[in-house]
Amino acid sequence: MNNRFVINYTPGPTFLHKLTGFTKVALFLVMTAAIISTFDIRILIPLLLINVAEVISMKPNYKPIIIMFLITFVTVTLIGNVMLFVVSPAAGLNNVGAEHILWQSGRFYLSKEFLWYIFVVFIKRTASFASVMAFALATTPSEFASGLNKCGFPYKVCTIVSLAYRTIPDIANDFINIRNSMMMRGLELTGKKVSLWKKLKNTVILLVPMIFTAFGKVGNIANAMDLRGYGKNKKRTWYAEHEASKGDRIVRILTLVLLLLTIYYVVMYRFINPWPAKFWCPWLQPEEIQHINIFDTLFFMKWFKK
C-alpha cells in the first residue's frame, strides 16, 4: 500500500536530499510561481527539463511515479481534451488567437491552433507535475514544516502541515482496516449492482467509525504537545533545519535568480510589452492575432445575447 505514496519520510543520500528545508521549499515555491506565470513554451520547456533532471538526479523508485503520470495523463489529458474538443473546439482561437482549420464536420472542427493549445497545456501540466514530484521526493515532513516557517508562514500552520503529513500513513492504515472489516461483514461499497443510494448509506456506516478513530487521537496528541510546552512562545526552532552548506548557497542563489527572472518576465512580457494572445505560437505574427474577450467564449453567453 505504501508503494502508492511518493512522500519521503527519511532523508536520502543525493545532493538535493541534503539541502535544508528552506532551500527546498523556496525552490519549490519559486518554481511553481514561474510555471504558473507563463504560457510561453519557450520558457516552459526549460522549466520542465530542469524539474525532470531534478527527479532523475534523486534516483527514485520510478514505478509509482510512472503509474501516477499515466493515471494523470489518461484522466486529465486524454479525457479532458476529448471533452474540450466536444465542448469548445474554439479553444485554439480563444487562447492562441487565430485558426487554421485542418478538418471539419458539422459544428466540430480541428484547427492547428487547437492542437498547439493542447500541447502547451500538456507541457505546462507536466512541468508542474515534475516539480511536485521533485519536491515530494526530496522533502521530509519536518523539513517541509521548517522550510515553510522560515519562508514566513506562522509556525502553527507549519505544525499542521507536518503533523498531517506524518499521520497520513496511520490514518490510511486505519481506513483500509476499517473498510476491509466492514466489507467482510457484508457492507457493499463498490459492487456494481448496488444502487447509488445504498452506496451512500453504506458510506455513512463506513465513515462514522473512521471519523471517531481519526479524531479520537486528537486528545492524546494535543495533551502530549501541551505537556511539552507547545505554543508557549512566539517562535520556535526546528530540529530538521541544519546549517546551510555550500550546495545550499548555490541553490539559493539560483532560486533567487529564477525569482528575479520570473518577476522580470511578468512585468516585461505580461504587462509592459505583452504578446497579443495568451499563448505564444511560432507560426503566427502579432498582426494576425484576434482579440477575444474571455467572457464571450462561455457557452451560455449566447443565450443572453438574443
Binding site: 502553527k156 490514518i171 471519523i211
Partner: peptide, 25 residues
Amino acid sequence: WNTRTIVTVAIGAALFGVLMNYGSI
C-alpha cells in the same frame, strides 16, 4: 487556535488526503 484545534485541523487534513485517495464511491 489552541493546541487541540491545531491537532484536529492537522488530522482533518490528513483524513482529507486519505479519503481523496481511497475513499471514493
